[in-house]
Simulated scan of single mutants.
Amino acid sequence: MIDLPLSKSARAEVGQKTGGFFRPSLGEALSKTIIYGNKPKNIESFAWSLAQRLPKVQCPIIDKACGELSDNFDSQYLIIECLRRGVMYHHGSIADTVRLYLENTFSKSKKLKYLVCSATF
């Protein structure tokens, strides 16, 4: 479990949305933070809850990835907005080509600070 500083109300909201599986945090990530989950729905829900509390980041690598994902998939794909805020998620229900692309993006961008994933990473 990860325990990161959040207000009590924010902690309760995220815990409720993820069935209490995660103890979220929004501390200053110095490098990369990996948060493991076990269900794609919980992973995506937690990643989105975390992303909503973070400011958008400026990064050409992330901008390129968001553009390519938007052009080749649905522009409403949740991962796109998460990426724009420095959060990525990764699980077995994501197509292999997209997962590999996301892994590459995560390793290249210093602005992607949080990865919420299953054991597929």
Results as ranks from 00 to 15, higher is better:
Ala10Lys: 13
Arg11Ile: 05
Arg11Gln: 14
Arg11His: 14
Arg11Asn: 11
Ala12Pro: 01
Ala12Thr: 10
Val14Lys: 04
Val14Arg: 10
Val14Tyr: 11
Gly15Arg: 09
Gly15Glu: 12
Gln16Asn: 09
Gln16Thr: 10
Gln16Ser: 05
Gln16Asp: 08
Lys17Val: 12
Thr18Ile: 10
Gly19Ala: 02
Gly19Ile: 02
Gly20Ser: 02
Gly20Gln: 05
Phe21Ala: 12
Phe22Ala: 06
Phe22Ile: 08
Phe22Ser: 07
Arg23Asn: 13
Pro24Asp: 08
Pro24Asn: 08
Pro24Thr: 11
Ser25Trp: 12
Ser25Thr: 07
Ser25Val: 08
Ser25Gln: 07
Leu26Asp: 02
Leu26Trp: 08
Gly27Tyr: 08
Gly27Ile: 05
Gly27Met: 09
Ala29Met: 11
Leu30Asn: 13
Leu30Met: 11
Ser31Asp: 15
Ser31Cys: 02
Lys32Arg: 15
Ile34Arg: 15
Ile34Met: 13
Tyr36Leu: 14
Gly37Val: 09
Asn38Lys: 09
Asn38His: 12
Lys39Tyr: 13
Lys39Cys: 11
Lys39Gln: 15
Lys41His: 14
Asn42Asp: 15
Ile43Lys: 03
Ile43Thr: 13
Phe46Ala: 08
Phe46Cys: 13
Ala47Gly: 12
Ser49Ile: 03
Ser49Glu: 15
Ser49Trp: 06
Leu50His: 03
Leu50Glu: 06
Leu50Val: 14
Ala51His: 01
Gln52Cys: 13
Gln52Thr: 10
Gln52Lys: 14
Arg53Thr: 03
Arg53Ser: 14
Arg53Phe: 10
Leu54Thr: 03
Leu54Ile: 04
Lys56Ser: 11
Lys56Leu: 06
Lys56Gln: 13
Val57Tyr: 01
Val57Gly: 00
Gln58Ala: 04
Gln58Gly: 01
Gln58Trp: 00
Cys59Ala: 00
Cys59Ser: 08
Cys59Glu: 00
Pro60Thr: 06
Pro60Ile: 01
Pro60Trp: 00
Asp63Cys: 04
Lys64Glu: 11
Ala65Tyr: 04
Ala65Ile: 04
Ala65His: 04
Ala65Gln: 11
Cys66Trp: 00
Gly67Lys: 04
Gly67Cys: 07
Glu68Trp: 03
Leu69Lys: 06
Leu69Met: 14
Ser70Ile: 01
Ser70Trp: 07
Ser70Asn: 00
Asp71Arg: 09
Asn72Leu: 12
Phe73Leu: 15
Asp74Val: 01
Asp74Arg: 04
Asp74Trp: 02
Asp74Met: 01
Ser75Gln: 04
Gln76Ile: 02
Gln76Leu: 09
Tyr77His: 12
Tyr77Glu: 12
Leu78Met: 08
Leu78Ala: 09
Leu78Glu: 03
Ile79Ser: 06
Ile79Glu: 12
Ile79Thr: 09
Ile79Asp: 05
Ile80Arg: 03
Ile80Glu: 00
Glu81Ile: 00
Glu81Met: 00
Cys82Trp: 00
Arg84Ala: 00
Arg85Pro: 01
Arg85Asn: 01
Gly86Glu: 04
Gly86Asn: 05
Gly86Asp: 07
Gly86Phe: 04
Val87Pro: 01
Val87Trp: 00
Tyr89Cys: 05
Tyr89Arg: 06
Tyr89His: 14
His91Cys: 05
Gly92Arg: 08
Gly92Trp: 04
Ser93Trp: 04
Ile94Tyr: 06
Ile94Gly: 03
Ala95Tyr: 08
Ala95Gln: 11
Asp96Ser: 15
Thr97Leu: 06
Val98Thr: 14
Arg99Ile: 08
Arg99Phe: 10
Tyr101Met: 11
Tyr101Pro: 02
Tyr101Phe: 14
Tyr101Cys: 02
Leu102Pro: 06
